[in-house]
Computed example of a mutant assay.
Amino acid sequence: MPNRLLNIKDGHNFRDLGGYQTTDGRTVKWRQLLRTGSLANLGNTDLTTLARIPVTQDIDLRGQAEVQQVPDQVPQTATYYHLPVFAEDETDASHSNEEIAKQMQEPGNGYRHMLTVYSRMVTIPSARKAFRQMFNHLLSNPNGATIFHCTAGKDRTGMATFLILSALGVPRETILKDYLLTNEVTADFRKSWLTQMKAQMPATPATDILINNRRALASVNIDYLKTAIGAINDQYGNVQHYLSDYLELSNEELHELRDHYLE
């Protein structure tokens, strides 16, 4: 069985969605759907690894400013598509420490901010357009793998993964486990990053509040995704109606998606 975590040296949270079973007994194909963090720092070794798969589509869910600041390093085998979920990064994954510190002075601000972000990810027009176009590209990629990513590979990417796996018929429990896997595979990186940040700041209660808020921003929480699911259920009844009524995926398209990505 292939490894779920890809062997990428200069990137974080590169994972394969292959191997997940669906409710009808089929399985998601390996090396077809790759959810990842930023491709901006990939070197030649990593690009060669992705080209050998081969990755043929790179779907970038980041905002325009993020793309301009740190553009993707695109495998030579892939076509690049920019599909911004937000016009600007609302997840704070790309914002400076100074920008975030101004917003994160109150206890719980990080957690509350992410609840708002997830609610908006399933309701705003730019997200609807991005996710619909994402499915269009998945349907038009008969050969090779698709990478879809944001900056940290956890929020916009996590929502995209939820929608893709839901469309393929993967059980909700499996999808939630995949979502939370981000915390496991990025644990060392996040711990080192937060420890270094705290060491550079004065030891005050305000510092502790800021660090706790940054921890909430840098990780995933089941409450975040369930907030999005709740918004979907409130407006459309369930995710299948969201896919068919809001994203306008036809039954034929859903069948085609499953035929291509399941075995």
Rank of each mutant, 00 (worst) to 15 (best):
I209S: 07
I232H: 10
M201A: 04
G230M: 01
G237V: 09
Y224A: 12
Y242Q: 10
N238P: 05
D223Y: 06
L217H: 08
N238G: 10
R214Q: 13
R214A: 09
N233E: 15
G237N: 07
G237Y: 03
D223H: 11
T204N: 07
Y236G: 03
K226N: 14
V220C: 08
Y242M: 06
L225S: 02
T204S: 12
V239C: 05
V220I: 08
V220A: 03
D245Y: 10
N238Y: 08
Q235Y: 11
L210V: 07
T227L: 05
L210I: 05
L243M: 03
D208T: 10
P202Y: 06
A228E: 05
I222G: 04
D223K: 11
T227K: 11
I229Q: 15
N221P: 11
Q235T: 10
M201I: 01
N212M: 11
I232L: 11
I229W: 09
N212K: 14
P202H: 09
D208P: 00
N233S: 12
D223E: 14
T204M: 06
D234E: 15
A216E: 14
A231M: 12
Y236K: 01
A231R: 13
P202N: 12
G230K: 09
A206G: 05
Q235K: 10
L225G: 02
A218V: 08
R215N: 14
N213F: 01
G237A: 08
Y224M: 11
A218P: 00
N212R: 14
V239P: 03
G230P: 00
V220S: 03
I222P: 00
D223T: 07
D234Y: 02
G230A: 06
Q200K: 13
Y224G: 09
T204V: 08
A216F: 02
P202K: 12
V220G: 01
S219R: 14
P202V: 07
T204K: 03
V239F: 07
I229M: 13
Q235D: 14
T227H: 06
N221Y: 10
D245Q: 12
Q200F: 02
D245C: 04
V239T: 14
Y236S: 09
L225A: 08
N213Q: 10
Q200H: 12
L225R: 03
I209V: 15
G237Q: 11
Q240K: 12
I209M: 09
N233W: 01
L243I: 05
N212I: 03
P202I: 10
M201P: 00
R215P: 00
T227A: 08
S244Y: 01
N221H: 15
L210W: 06
Q240F: 01
A218F: 12
I211L: 10
Y224V: 09
L217D: 03
T227M: 12
L210C: 01
V239D: 02
A231P: 00
I211P: 02
S244E: 13
A206K: 11
N212G: 13
I209G: 11
G230V: 00
V239L: 11
V220E: 01
A216G: 03
Q235F: 02
K226Q: 15
R215M: 12
N212L: 08
L225F: 11
R214F: 13
G230H: 10
Q235W: 07
A231Q: 15
S244H: 11
G237H: 06
N213C: 05
S219A: 13
N233Q: 15
A231L: 05
I211G: 04
Q235H: 12
D208M: 01
A228Q: 05
Y236Q: 09
D223Q: 13
Y236A: 03
S244W: 00
K226C: 07
P202D: 09
D245M: 08
